[in-house]
């Protein structure tokens, strides 16, 4: 009896969450069927919007890959025993963790040239790559803080034990400390990934052809208020379908790691 009453609200909220997950696409679908002219217009524009969203995903994956690599190294360097190494890295992390993503995207877009010369060959330097770098900078700062926090959260006794077993500092870091950090830093890393994914929409402000940009294009081309609404609803639904599962998974992982 008691377990049943305990489970009941949980089940109810799970049901609500599932309903919430499909609510936005459902609204779009139902509306397109009620007003078929609108639905036809939307179907026509879906491939264009999808190509925009593919760009969002490409930017976010590349930015996270680059940001994670740099950030993990910087996180380790933040704990380096040499001040000359530590201070510049700490300054980098502090400045770029506090900087708005938009400012960094503007910085990379307007500071970097539109093409680079390598051995006399002109290579184009497209805007979306600049956006990737602009988002990888804050990502690397966040990941550095996460890595640093995870390393510090491991008991110092483990360092001493590793030393006792004859591991050098680097070896202990590589084989004993970092593998344990991986698990602990997964939930906050996923938070960063979600935040960077949502940040990709900012690239539209520097003219990268991504989902928000595509929706603006579509709505100016069609010139119907209801189409504008539905186009932006599609944008919201797309980001929601991508970020909501990440957020749910993060919360579940957090709960499991806290319990363990």
């Amino acid at each position: 009896m008691t377990t049943a009453t305990l489970l009941e609200p949980r089940k109810r909220s799970d049901l609500l969450r599932t309903v919430g997950f499909v609510a936005l696409p459902l609204v779009i679908l139902v509306w397109s069927f009620i007003d078929l002219t609108l639905g036809r217009e939307l179907v026509e524009w879906i491939p264009y919007l999808a190509s925009g969203f593919a760009m969002n995903i490409v930017i976010s994956l590349s930015a996270m890959a680059l940001g994670t690599m740099v950030g993990a190294i910087f996180g380790i360097l933040e704990l380096a025993p040499y001040r000359l190494v530590r201070y510049p890295v700490v300054a980098y992390v502090q400045i770029f963790r506090n900087a708005p993503h938009l400012v960094l995207i503007f910085a990379t877009t307007y500071i970097f040239p539109f093409e680079i010369v390598i051995f006399g060959n002109y290579l184009p330097f497209p805007d979306w790559v600049k956006a990737v770098i602009g988002l990888a900078i804050p990502a690397s700062a966040y990941v550095a803080e996460i890595t640093r926090g995870a390393i510090l959260s491991i008991a110092t006794a483990q360092w001493e034990a590793a030393k006792g077993l004859g591991f050098s500092r680097g070896q202990a870091m590589r084989w004993i400390i970092l593998p344990q950090c991986l698990r602990r830093s997964l939930p906050p890393w996923m938070n960063v990934a979600a935040s960077i994914t949502m940040g990709t929409a900012l690239a539209s402000l520097v003219g990268v052809h991504e989902l928000l940009h595509a929706a603006t294009d579509a709505s100016t081309a069609v010139r119907r208020l209801d189409f504008t609404i539905i186009a932006y609803l599609v944008v919201m639904a797309a980001f929601f379908m991508l970020c909501y599962p990440i957020a749910r998974l993060t919360r579940r992982l957090e709960r499991r790691f806290n319990a363990a």
């Binding site: 949502m198 928000l212 504008t228 932006y232 919201m236 970020c243």
Partner: peptide, 16 residues
């Protein structure tokens, strides 16, 4: 709100 970009919310509010 948490799972969609603020910029999209802003454009939606401002345009719609």
């Amino acid at each position: 709100t948490r799972n969609t970009p603020t910029l999209v919310q802003l454009m939606f509010s401002f345009l719609v």
